[in-house]
């Protein structure tokens, strides 16, 4: 059928049922917004995990005595550098560490005055290759370091990274559950809208069937309507997501982001769900082309052909 005419017919159908169409499109948009908020949180945790793993550095605190012997220190550094996964090592004398602490604490140096003597031991800072930042690798590395003479203590961010990883896993599980719920809800919303449109159009559908319209010709306007609803909902949720993003950004110090493909994906998802909901609705309503089986849709019985 002529595309322009089909679109005209689609809008005619929507117009007859416009309150429900608009309202359910808004609900659909909110559903998709919730989904994208969850996904956004996940993405940002993922990003955080990635960047904190990239920065992974292990601190090996060393005996003060060893720092007095450049030869011993150098040997120790070399032995550390030869451990698998170590990219770089750098000695950090205690004065420098104090400087760093002072800088981190800012103008309030009361703590330092109270402490009096410099409390921070000298350390060797070890940069890890990104492939070796998994908890298992870090553990092995820690054990190896502790076996070396002169190393008193080892500190890595592995607890933090492990926690982040745990959070990520939880987030992904929640996302999947949420995705299922939202997908079902959205399908249901579209399904209901299309079903009502079909009922509103039953007179037209009967005429179409009588004059010999193909099934495709009868179904296409409803598919256009479903796709349009999905598109509308997803664009709405995209706009709302952007607003939420702008608001959150002013409250949260670390950077958050929404990748553009994410928005595109959401629109595609919206359209697919719109088509899916339409498909279910049309499959559930048997065509009068079939010779009206016993379980014929009750709503259709009343308007059955004479």
């Amino acid at each position: 059928m002529n595309l322009l005419y089909l679109i005209k017919e689609t809008f005619r159908t929507i117009n007859r049922n416009r309150e429900q169409f608009v309202l359910s499109s808004v609900v659909l948009g909110i559903c998709l917004l919730l989904l994208s908020l969850f996904l956004m949180v996940t993405l940002n945790i993922m990003n955080l995990v990635k960047s904190s793993s990239e920065l992974a550095e292990v601190y090996a605190f060393v005996d003060e005595e060893i720092t007095n012997s450049p030869l011993l220190l150098e040997t120790l550094e070399q032995r550390i550098a030869s451990i698998a996964g170590v990219v770089a090592v750098r000695f950090f004398p205690k004065e420098q560490a104090l400087e760093e602490l002072r800088r981190d604490l800012g103008p309030d140096t009361t703590v330092l005055t109270v402490l009096g003597e410099n409390p921070i031991p000298p350390s060797i800072r070890i940069k890890i290759h990104p492939d070796y930042t998994t908890p298992e690798h870090i553990n092995t590395l820690e054990q190896k370091l502790l076996l070396l003479p002169g190393i008193t203590e080892v500190w890595s961010g592995k607890e933090f990274v492990a926690q982040l990883n745990q959070a990520l896993k939880t987030a992904v599980v929640i996302d999947i559950i949420f995705l299922i719920i939202i997908v079902i809800s959205v399908l249901f919303i579209v399904f209901q809208t299309v079903e009502n449109s079909v009922l509103n159009r039953s007179e037209e559908i009967q005429i179409m069937e009588l004059v010999g319209a193909s099934r495709i010709a009868i179904h296409t306007p409803f598919f256009i309507q479903g796709a349009l609803q999905g598109l509308l909902g997803s664009v709405l949720s995209g706009v709302l997501l952007f607003l939420v993003y702008r608001i959150i950004k002013t409250f949260i110090p670390f950077p958050i982001f929404i990748p553009a493909p994410f928005l595109a994906g959401e629109i595609v998802l919206g359209i697919i769900l719109g088509l899916g909901g339409t498909f279910i609705a049309l499959a559930r309503i048997p065509s009068t082309l079939l010779t009206m089986p016993a379980g014929f849709h009750r709503k259709f019985r009343t308007s059955k052909l004479g």
């Binding site: 059928m1 005419y5 037209e204 005429i207 004059v211 010999g212 193909s214 010709a217 009868i218």
Partner: peptide, 10 residues
């Protein structure tokens, strides 16, 4: 409506 339903040329 009828002619469109049976794909008559515009």
């Amino acid at each position: 409506f009828v002619l469109r339903a049976i794909n008559t040329q515009s």
